[in-house]
């Protein structure tokens, strides 16, 4: 079992679970600028639990997370993260109780031939245009956010940073690009969105 030490936190990771990488670190770093003590936070698709574990160890916040991959859910649990094994928001009542919802989605454009066997596919497979999980997230997230609550979404040039920013705006979010970094093959950004239009859960075209 491998381990990463990061900001007062020791995070273990195992096979068949997405290993913390540049995208994970960028989302975590960005979240530090927006989190305030006392917040109720939900992380969708926590994987190893890295983001939740680091935030929990550095702020006085309540964090719960969801994860579909059973190996990842157990890994997150071993990292002292409160995790529910479910797909996205499926196992949660639509109660608007969270100040902030974080999501590092699977964003790689993926055809049927490119799917990876096993649960780990959920960490990569963003559908044909890389945006399937992001659409699902935006379709549901406002049912869980407090009024004027916010979201942080890790996005990649593979699925289109500006395209996703516009998509978020169409769901009633005021969107800010908080971090943007270029790596060898892609550009990553964290989009921070404040939900400004009450009860708007479907895009406005």
């Amino acid at each position: 079992m491998a381990k990463i030490e990061y900001k007062n936190t020791s995070v273990q990771f195992v096979d068949n679970v997405y290993e913390p990488a540049e995208d994970t670190f960028l989302l975590t770093e960005s979240a530090f600028n927006y989190i305030k003590d006392g917040m109720n936070i939900l992380e969708i698709g926590t994987g190893t639990g890295f983001v939740s574990a680091v935030l929990k160890n550095n702020f006085e916040v309540n964090i719960v997370s969801t994860e579909i991959n059973p190996d990842a859910a157990q890994c997150a649990r071993s990292n002292d993260v409160e995790v529910i094994r479910t797909n996205m928001f499926d196992g949660l009542k639509p109660i608007q109780c969270f100040d902030l919802i974080l999501f590092n989605p699977p964003y790689l454009p993926t055809t049927d031939d490119e799917k990876v066997p096993g649960w780990i596919n959920y960490a990569y497979d963003g559908g044909i245009d890389g945006c399937d999980a992001i659409r699902n997230f935006l379709d549901n997230v406002c049912n869980y956010l407090k009024p004027n609550g916010s979201i942080m979404l890790l996005v990649s040039s593979f699925s289109g940073i500006d395209y996703i920013k516009k998509m978020m705006e169409s769901y009633g979010f005021e969107v800010y690009s908080t971090s943007r970094e270029r790596y060898f093959f892609e550009e990553l950004a964290v989009l921070y969105g404040i939900h400004k239009i009450k009860n708007l859960c479907k895009p406005v075209h």
């Binding site: 579909i68 059973p70 157990q74 649990r77 529910i84 094994r85 479910t86 499926d90 196992g91």
Partner: peptide
């Protein structure tokens, strides 16, 4: 199981 609700 092991403190993890399995809602799949």
């Amino acid at each position: 199981e092991d403190g993890i609700p399995n809602l799949i």
